[in-house]
Design a protein around this nucleic acid. Structure first.
Lengths: 199, 199
DNA sequence: ACTTCAATGTAGGCGATGACAACAATGCTG
DNA sequence: CAGCATTGTTGTCATCGCCTACATTGAAGT
């Protein structure tokens, strides 16, 4: 337990709560996440978190938002090492996304779970939008290279996006045999390339 | 509130709890689901549910299991009205799956959320397996018709399965614009057909 | 028909939680 | 240095999940 002796102001309690919340989410799942336990772990009183988050759900929503932000960064970083070909860039992005998902299984569940607060939905929708924009940009590049059929971005990009997301979700759900996951992504990438190729 | 005056044994409390739990899940989400509230709603004491479910998580797991059972039935029923062509059967199954998902958004989330109890995982994995077997059977039929490329069932079927699942998940997540969802499934079906076609 | 026992209820207790209110300490700004 | 915003603390309350012990009912066996 971390206690800062003699200090009253934590300094950056909000960030510390989010970090600790993510650890608890990873270890025990969302149902076991407790504001009071987070406060104890960080050496503050049980009501301190309420100075930073309106309620428990607000903290979970903020955590989901950080997930999207980190996903965005992960995908942007992956682009820097991709070859120029569409197939190579798709493969790199797919591996980056599934890598992120696998390393953050519970966080991915939280990110995409149904939100009941309209305000939270707006912020999270915007964050999810930024990440799917990377798919749209990739599809546009594929179209320029003649590797992807013509058509409005969202109509050609959506199938690609839902395939990657579906695979990532199933990979982290624990419901697929490990051997299926191991080479499944390569099969999925090949299928995407064929699925969105010009007819 | 339903109360059975003068009765002590409910008669079928387990089923009633599951039905009521699904209603609460639909209306308020998993975080708001409360065993005591379910008991109050059904006119029994707060400890009665524990005679049927070891704990709250056991009830949620049982609810997820009923979801898979109903999904299985929905997909089997959809096959009866499908044409013989692979494309038609795929379309019918896709619409049935997304229809089920859309009508049961929170239940779908629950069904595929990460399970921490190994016993629950086994039962749910078996249930999910039965539903993905229908995909495998469909893919086999497509291969016989020459509409799907050759290859092991699980390697050709997995991309199809994750695409449908990813689309259903995104459709219910509330993160896609409605107009994208409206005709998105047709785009996804066309993409699947092309993605798994012989090269 | 009666007894026994399993199934399924009820009543109560306990510790933990989320949320709220009132007060306290600190740091920043003018 | 004063004032105020920010960010803590202490305390309270209602509700919850889970557990134990007891009560009621229904089914099975004799």
């Amino acid at each position: 337990m971390h206690i800062r002796p003699g200090r009253y102001h934590h300094g950056d309690l909000r960030a510390a709560l989010l970090n600790r919340a993510e650890e608890t989410l990873r270890e025990k799942g969302p149902a076991a996440l407790s504001l009071r336990e987070l406060a104890r772990d960080l050496g503050v009183s049980h009501a301190a978190p309420s100075r930073h988050f309106k309620d428990k759900q607000a903290l979970l929503d903020a955590l989901a938002l950080t997930g999207f932000e980190r996903l965005d960064e992960t995908l942007k970083a992956s682009r820097e090492r991709a070859d120029e070909s569409f197939a190579e860039r798709l493969a790199v992005m797919a591996h980056a996304y599934v890598g992120f998902a696998t390393a953050n299984a519970e966080l991915l569940d939280l990110m995409y779970s149904i939100k009941h607060d309209p305000e939270a939905s707006e912020a999270l929708d915007a964050a999810a939008q930024r990440w799917s924009e990377q798919i749209v940009e990739l599809i546009g590049e594929g179209q320029r290279q003649g590797q992807v059929r013509e058509g409005p971005m969202e109509r050609v990009g959506l199938p690609v996006f839902v395939t990657l997301h579906g695979y990532a979700s199933m990979a982290v759900s624990g419901m697929l045999p490990l051997e299926t996951i191991e080479h499944g992504l390569d099969d999925v990438i090949a299928y995407i390339l064929q699925g969105c190729a010009p007819e």
